[in-house]
Simulated scan of single mutants.
Amino acid sequence: MCGRFALLARADLLREFLNLVNLEEPPARYNIAPTQPILVVVAGDRQAPGSNLPERKALLVRWGFMPGWVKDPQDFPLLINARAETAIGKASFRAAMRHRRILVPASGFFEWRRPADKGAKAQAYFIRPRKGEIVAFAGLMETWSSADGSEVDTGAILTTAANADIARIHDRMPVVIRPEDFSRWLDCRTQEPREVEDLMRPIEEGFFEAIPVSDKVGKVSNMGPDILEPVEEIAEPETKKGADAPPKAGQKPDQLSLF
Score class of each variant (00 low, 15 high):
49 P>S: 05
178 R>A: 06
220 V>N: 05
7 L>M: 10
43 A>S: 15
57 K>G: 02
177 I>M: 13
136 A>T: 07
240 K>V: 14
42 V>D: 04
119 G>H: 14
76 F>R: 01
173 M>K: 02
78 L>M: 10
82 A>P: 06
179 P>S: 14
183 S>G: 11
78 L>C: 03
258 L>N: 02
248 K>C: 01
58 A>M: 05
133 E>H: 05
95 A>D: 13
255 Q>V: 02
99 H>E: 15
138 A>V: 10
125 Y>N: 02
26 P>K: 00
43 A>T: 05
196 V>H: 02
107 S>P: 04
208 F>H: 01
223 M>V: 14
157 I>N: 01
56 R>Q: 03
175 V>G: 07
202 P>W: 13
52 N>F: 12
246 P>N: 05
167 A>M: 12
204 E>M: 06
25 E>K: 01
92 S>Q: 06
171 D>L: 06
37 P>F: 04
123 Q>D: 13
27 P>E: 06
32 I>P: 06
109 F>W: 11
133 E>W: 02
167 A>K: 14
155 G>K: 05
217 V>M: 09
181 D>C: 08
67 P>G: 00
172 R>W: 07
50 G>V: 11
65 F>M: 00
53 L>S: 11
53 L>Y: 07
243 A>H: 09
86 T>W: 15
244 D>F: 13
110 F>H: 09
80 I>G: 01
7 L>T: 06
95 A>H: 12
196 V>M: 04
202 P>I: 10
156 A>P: 01
111 E>T: 03
53 L>P: 03
173 M>E: 08
107 S>Q: 04
149 G>E: 04
